[in-house]
């Protein structure tokens, strides 16, 4: 069984203000390009600004699809809510042909699986392959039962894809004060992810952005601040490579060959975080021999996460 391990390298130093709106992705022809948003279902200035930034950046980085990591609609889910909380804010993207692939969060009703614009095809968990060499797996982390675990095991085993990317709502690793790591889901999901060499996991639930130090060869991102923000909730921990809980955010991602590039952008269009993940080598099926990725120390965060220290 093929098992890749991951090497993370920080491509560039965090940008000065003048260069903050530069595209930091290679934007190669034929690469897999996508955006990632999370906890998006609350109308308001944050959601609007993120949707506008996504549309603006798409002119420079033509991503054909976007992942949604859950909590797609907060509160009621009438037809008007779908319009107000999704179709209206992302109209420019939808009109431009962007396909959204949703995972369910704890605020999402199962009826969303039937909404064509979420591309779930009636399933709470599903897989899709937009291009050769990359396969995505949407997981329902609200309800990790034996049936879903068996499905995930089977689909990952059968995928044969070079890149295996999972996305779901609850972060298996997190430095959030409100929620923190989803230990119980991790106990069940992580062994399956490791067994099949999953490379990257995108999650939400926490209303901030956090790039986690790769854990057992898997790179984890939390991007739950695309419409809701919980300022002061990120308690920087040994898990944290970079975090931001003061700006709404979304991610742009590009996969070219053995490298995945990411750029996290705020509602103001500034680049919060950027870097790349490089896969290298084959690792046997025994997870104990997985090589821990090398993670160069990132430059100090421009935002010091966490609440102010008491005087």
């Amino acid at each position: 069984m093929r098992r890749a391990h991951v090497i993370i390298a920080l491509l560039l130093a965090l940008p000065p203000a003048a260069a903050a709106q530069e595209l930091r992705l290679p934007n190669k022809e034929g690469s897999t390009k996508f955006a990632v948003i999370g906890d998006t279902g609350q109308p308001g200035p944050g959601q609007t600004a993120i949707a506008e930034q996504m549309a603006a950046w798409r002119k420079r980085f033509a991503f054909p699809f976007a992942l949604m990591v859950g909590d797609n609609l907060y509160g009621s889910e009438s037809a008007r809510d779908y319009q107000k909380k999704f179709a209206d804010p992302y109209k420019a993207l939808l009109d431009g042909g962007v396909k959204f692939y949703a995972a369910l969060g704890n605020h999402d009703d199962a009826g969303q699986t039937q909404y064509k614009a979420f591309n779930m095809n009636g399933q709470k968990y599903y897989t899709f392959k937009p291009q050769n060499g990359v396969r995505f797996f949407a997981i329902d982390s609200n309800y990790v039962d034996q049936k879903q675990l068996e499905w995930l095991d089977t689909e990952l085993a059968a995928s044969g894809s070079d890149w295996k990317i999972v996305f779901f709502h609850h972060p298996l690793y997190s430095s959030g004060a409100t929620h923190g790591s989803a230990d119980l889901q991790r106990e069940l999901l992580e062994p399956v992810l490791l067994k099949h060499g999953v490379n990257v996991a995108f999650t939400g639930h926490e209303h901030f952005y956090e790039r986690i130090k790769p854990q057992k060869g898997v790179a984890y991102f939390i991007i739950g601040s695309s419409s809701k923000l919980r300022t002061g909730d990120l308690r920087k921990s040994p898990l944290t490579v970079y975090g931001n809980d003061s700006d709404y955010a979304f991610m742009l991602v590009e996969i070219a060959g053995d490298e995945l590039y990411f750029q996290t952008i705020s509602d103001k269009g500034t680049t919060l975080d950027t870097g790349s993940i490089k896969r290298a080598g084959d690792v046997g099926p025994n997870q104990n021999v997985t090589t821990q990725p090398v993670v160069p120390q990132a430059k100090p965060s421009p935002v010091q996460p966490g609440p102010p220290k008491p005087k």
């Binding site: 009621s76 889910e77 605020h107 999402d108 309800y143 039962d145 119980l184």
Partner: peptide
């Protein structure tokens, strides 16, 4: 309709008898 669906702890879920959809 307006209330979140409480996440079922994964360890609890594996203990309970499986259910047919939905």
């Amino acid at each position: 309709e307006n209330q979140p669906l409480p996440t079922v702890p994964a360890n609890v879920l594996l203990t309970l008898p499986p259910l047919p959809a939905p």
